[in-house]
Computed example of a mutant assay.
Amino acid sequence: MTAEVSPTQVSLEDLLRDAVVRLRDAGVPSARVDAEILLAHVLGESRGRAAALALAGRRADPETAERLRSLVDERARRVPLQHLTGLAPFRGLELRIGPGAFIPRPETEQVAQAALDHLQCVRVSRPRVIDLGTGSGALAAAIAAEHPAAEVHAVELSEQAAAWARVNLEPHGVTLHRQDLREVPAEWEAAFDVVVSNPPYIPPGMVPTEAEVREHDPELALYGGGPDGLQVPWAVVDSAAALLSAGGWMIMEHAEVQAATIAARLAEDPRFAQVRTHQDLTGRDRATSAVRTDTAARPSPFDAIDMGE
């Protein structure tokens, strides 16, 4: 005996098909994927399970159908998918995300991997790591989750971004500091083993083509300042030089076109050695690392003070 179907219910397959068409017509490049993710979100299911339910002929009540249509409308207006679901995947994590925080990108996962690879070689039982300009907390959270022996700190100036970072970092025991990444308190000097950063680096004339980035990512997280977008990245380098102990290591994400300039400047900087350019999964030069050379080793102040926010 088959269950009676209410005439007001709508086929999930029809809803999904309509969502794909509307998103494709709006120019969303990943229309099918986004439609399935939005359907999964309103159903409270995984993406694969939601797609399977649609293929199996499952139907939705009017409230669920209307909620999906509303989300698809917003996505068609190029509101980021992550803002609609409130989640952004990053390595093995699901980060809480929303307006005011930079949405983490896949290439930044490779920066995290490089840092984790380096931490495997650090001969310190509890290495200290600091993420400058943490945004949503992606790098710091991933490092803390995947290298639990590390003591991880994160710095963020934006009040909105810090609110999201706090939610993402607290479960992993990361200490969040609300301050400018250019300011290094005296007690932090030469106290860290690793500095990571994905700072703003877009030049002022290079407006992002993606509407999701151009209209929804905060400008504070996008534009690096100066004619080449490198004002903030150079500040990261200076802060890293102050923060790192002798032999400490830094890695910074940047645009592909900035790689040669950053590598050349670091190679000429007496504070750093072993400069290396790192590629993302598409082979583009997207990060640079270096080792701190001339800081005298000194006892860490963290053994004696409380680093509150």
Rank of each mutant, 00 (worst) to 15 (best):
H177A: 09
R91D: 02
V10C: 04
A51N: 03
L244H: 02
P203W: 08
A19D: 04
H147A: 15
A144I: 12
I305S: 08
P29A: 08
E146Q: 14
Q160G: 00
P106C: 05
G224E: 06
G92V: 07
A26S: 11
Q110G: 14
T64F: 04
A246T: 11
L39E: 01
F102C: 00
V184R: 07
S125W: 10
R126P: 00
D180N: 14
E183I: 13
G57M: 10
E109I: 12
R166V: 00
A140Y: 15
A162W: 06
D294I: 10
A242F: 02
A114W: 01
R59Q: 06
A114N: 05
Q279K: 15
L244R: 03
I130K: 07
G86P: 03
V184A: 10
V129Q: 07
L71F: 09
E94H: 13
E146P: 06
D34R: 11
A56W: 02
D306C: 13
S136T: 10
A112S: 12
R22K: 14
V122A: 09
A26Q: 06
V237I: 14
P62C: 05
P185T: 06
A161S: 05
A273N: 03
D280R: 12
S158R: 04
G57C: 10
R123M: 08
A273L: 03
P62S: 04
A140L: 12
Q279G: 00
E183K: 08
A76F: 11
T134P: 01
Y223S: 09
L53Y: 06
M307P: 15
A260L: 12
V111S: 05
R276T: 14
Y223W: 10
A211F: 05
R214G: 00
G100R: 10
A19M: 02
T293F: 00
L87S: 10
R286A: 08
L169R: 04
D217L: 05
L15Y: 11
A51S: 14
A287W: 14
E253T: 02
H278Q: 08
E159G: 01
E253G: 02
V213G: 03
A60I: 08
A154R: 11
P204A: 12
A163H: 05
G225S: 10
G27E: 05
T261I: 12
F192N: 14
F90Q: 11
R59K: 07
P104K: 03
L38I: 13
G137E: 03
H254F: 13
T64I: 14
V275E: 04
V237T: 06
F90M: 09
A51Q: 09
F272Q: 05
R17F: 00
R78Q: 13
E156M: 08
L38Y: 03
H83A: 04
P301E: 12
S197F: 01
A190F: 02
G27V: 03
A54F: 09
E210S: 13
P270D: 11
A56D: 14
E63V: 14
A221W: 15
A52C: 04
L116D: 01
E74R: 15
I143M: 06
P203E: 13
R214D: 09
V184W: 11
H278D: 07
P127C: 04
S245V: 11
A290T: 01
D294A: 09
V72Q: 07
D18I: 01
V72Y: 02
E309S: 14
R276Y: 01
M252K: 01
D285C: 04
A150E: 07
L181G: 00
S30T: 14
Q179C: 11
V207L: 15
A114D: 12
A88L: 08
L43T: 04
V122Y: 00
G224S: 13
I130L: 10
G247I: 06
